[in-house]
Amino acid sequence: MYYLYILTLLALLISVFKSVDKTSKAVKIALKKFINILPAFVSMLILVSIILFLIPDKIILKYLGNNNKIVGIMLASFFGSVTLMPGFIAFPLCGILLKKGVTYMVLSAFSTTLMMVGVLTYPIEKEYFGTRVTILRNIFSFFIAIVVALITGIFFGEIW
C-alpha cells in the first residue's frame, strides 16, 4: 500500500517541477473523473454492504465444504461471482477452507471468480464500458474461472 503513496507523491513532485500548469490540469482531471464516477461507486458500496451481510464468511465456509465436486464448483463460482472481498480477507479464508479439506479445484473456482467476475462492480463497469460489454466480459470471465478450476483439479489429481 505504501509504495502507491510514495509513487503518487513522486509523480506529483516531478510533474510540478516540470510544469505547474500541467500538474494543476492533471489534478483537475483527476477530481472531475472521480466525481463523475462517485455515484457508481456509492451504488457498488451499497450493494457490497448488503450482499456481505446476506452472505457472510460463515455461510461460505459452510457451503464450500460440500463433498460433491460439481456442486462444490458451482457453489464456489456462485459465491465468488456475487461477492467482493479484498485479497487480505479472501486468501486467509481460502487457507482455512483448504485446511478443512476443501479441494484446490473448488478454491480455484472461488478465488478466480472472486477476482474476475464482478456482479457487484457492475455499476462501475457499466459506467465506463456500457452494459453489453460488461455482461460479455463477465460471462467470459466466469467460464475462464471454471476452466481454470478444472485445470487446477487435474494438476492436483482431484478429478481422477
Binding site: T8, A11, K25, A26, A30, K33, F34, L45, S49
Partner: peptide, 25 residues
C-alpha cells in the same frame, strides 16, 4: 460493512485518480 469498504477504497482511489490525471496530461 459500508463504512469499512468505503475506507478501504478511499485509501486507494485518490492515488489512482491522480495517477490517471497525470497520465492523461
Amino acid at each position: 460493512n459500508f463504512y469499512s469498504f468505503s475506507m478501504e477504497m478511499l485509501k486507494l482511489l485518490p492515488c489512482a485518480f491522480i495517477l490517471i490525471g497525470l497520465f492523461e496530461v
